[in-house]
Nucleic acid binder design. Structure first.
Length: 207
DNA sequence: ACCCAGGTGGCCC
DNA sequence: GGGCCACATGGG
């Protein structure tokens, strides 16, 4: 029942918008190098409850300061407590986000030695590990898994909640409930998940 | 002078 | 389990 309906909605969005554009070109082109993946992770944190424009301003400040990897973030935090926070100021909630970025960088480097290993372990375990980090909740964890690491995990955000309500899929707002609605009813393909979620956000902004 | 934007965590009941 | 609140900037 829901299976055909949900995939049909995806096809309609594709017909309407084509391939995701804007920031989504970066995220949906499936970042290959470690540096590209790490940039997606940093962006996922910076854009929490913040429009992408402001996240980009913060990202640009980091790049200008020569910080564009988890290792750079970790070193910056060691050297100067406030540097990160000051650089990412335009993204809002900047003290929390600076703590989050540094904590995540430290965790990944100390526990896995880098991003590669995190992407190789059991998916459930990596999700749990991410969720234990302060400042990383389900949406950010799943964004990292889906867009940086290419794992088949459907990302749920406010746009997705409005989407499922609008198209009468469910009124339930629970994260896992909506996530399972998607994951159980469309092919488990990370490329489909990436594009579908991007299109839901694009459609949600299109008033 | 409002209102909003890819959330998260803490505290309360 | 759900309801409220702090966290903060830049643009309309």
């Amino acid at each position: 029942m829901a299976k055909n309906k949900i995939f049909g909605l995806y096809q309609e969005l594709r017909k309407k918008y084509g391939h995701p554009k804007g920031q989504w070109v970066l995220w949906c082109r499936r970042p290959k190098t470690n540096k590209e993946k790490e940039e997606v992770i940093i962006g996922a944190i910076l854009t929490q409850r913040t429009n992408w424009r402001n996240a980009e301003l913060a990202l640009a400040n980091l790049k200008k300061a020569g910080i564009d990897s988890l290792k750079d973030i970790y070193k910056s935090g060691l050297k100067n407590e406030n540097q990160l926070a000051l650089l990412i100021r335009p993204s809002g909630f900047y003290r929390q986000k600076a703590d989050c970025l540094w904590g995540l960088a430290k965790f990944i480097l100390e526990n896995y030695g880098g991003l590669k290993k995190l992407g190789e372990i059991d998916l459930l375990k990596s999700r749990e590990d991410l969720l234990k980090q302060k400042g990383i909740g389900p949406e950010t964890a799943d964004s990292i898994l889906l867009y940086a690491l290419g794992k088949p995990v459907f990302v749920i955000d406010e746009y997705t909640r409005r989407f499922v309500k609008k198209y009468l899929l469910t009124n339930n707002r629970d994260y896992r409930f909506i996530q399972e609605l998607f994951e159980k009813n469309i092919k488990k393909d990370f490329r489909l998940y990436q594009d579908f979620h991007a299109l839901i956000v694009i459609d949600g902004k299109n008033k």
